[in-house]
Amino acid sequence: MNTLLKLLSNRWTLGLIVIALVCLVPIVITSKYWMHVFILILIWSIAALSLNLIMGYTGQANLAHGGFFGIGAYATALLMLKLNLGFWPALLLAALITSVVGFLIGLPTLRTKGSYFAIGTLCFNVIVFIAAERWESLTGGARGVIGIPPPSPISLPFGIVVKFSTLSGMFYLSFFLLLVTLFIKYRIVHSLVGRSFMAVRESEDLTSSIGIDTMKTKIISFVTSVFIVSLSGSLYAVYIGFLDPEIASHHVTFEVLLFVVLGGIGTIAGPIIGTIIVTLLGEMLHFLEAFRLVAYGLVLVLVIIFMPQGLMGGIRSLQQKIAARDM
């Protein structure tokens, strides 16, 4: 019993158990509706995790994340439909395109501090939205892009064929990319590079005085972040099979922001928790319509004033309090 408890308290075993449980979901859950909700949660979790990298760990309020999500989604769809590329090359190429755009936008906006970056990226998000809506020959304008095919099946050894046209195939694909994202993020956060990100967040002056190129650090964080959000955009495109300009708008940015803030800015698991809670509540409270959005707003304001580290941060400080009492 004791060893079992010990095993459970180890992060890695706990992680493996969670992974195993999630892998069981498509087998246990038969409802198409809930599978759909879970897949969306996986896709949006990736987006939330990537926003957290630049915003939570590097302290730069990127308000164009929806725009980059949209660029990744549109690029994937158009590469697959117009150039007949397969899903995997399209996924990578779209992420590269998004990264280049991110780099070009980061260069002028990241040179400045705080407010300018937030405003500049928000304006850029609007440009992306307008381009998606008006550049009809490329994006299909307000009608959008339809008929995006699912990734073609891949065959593994022993005659196993993974099909992505099924809900469970899509579920595993999204879960796989979420794990890759988590792995990358974990490695970055626990490295010298991640330490530089957090150093920039705390004080740019001190950080440049100890020989770290703050501009380069911010660019690296930003480009990595938009590379990853492009992956989630690609998943969204092939899963839903249809895109319209709204998917590239700042409303998407705000929603992903809500996931991150509620779950916990600058924590590893927070953005996922936030995505799960908001998505599930959103589905359950759908009938409330606009009142739901008022509630979103209230949650953002209240959380940021009273619990700025979100749910994960709240839990952490609670743990610390308990630990301090035990001592």
Binding site: G114, F254, G297, L300, V301
Partner: peptide, 24 residues
């Protein structure tokens, strides 16, 4: 006294509240 980031986020919360409120 909080980081600037927090005020941006609060402002976005306000946008939600007001826009949805006016929609209602």
């Amino acid at each position: 006294a909080a980081p600037h980031l927090n005020s941006f986020i609060a402002a976005i919360g306000l946008i939600y509240i007001f826009k949805a409120g006016m929609l209602i």
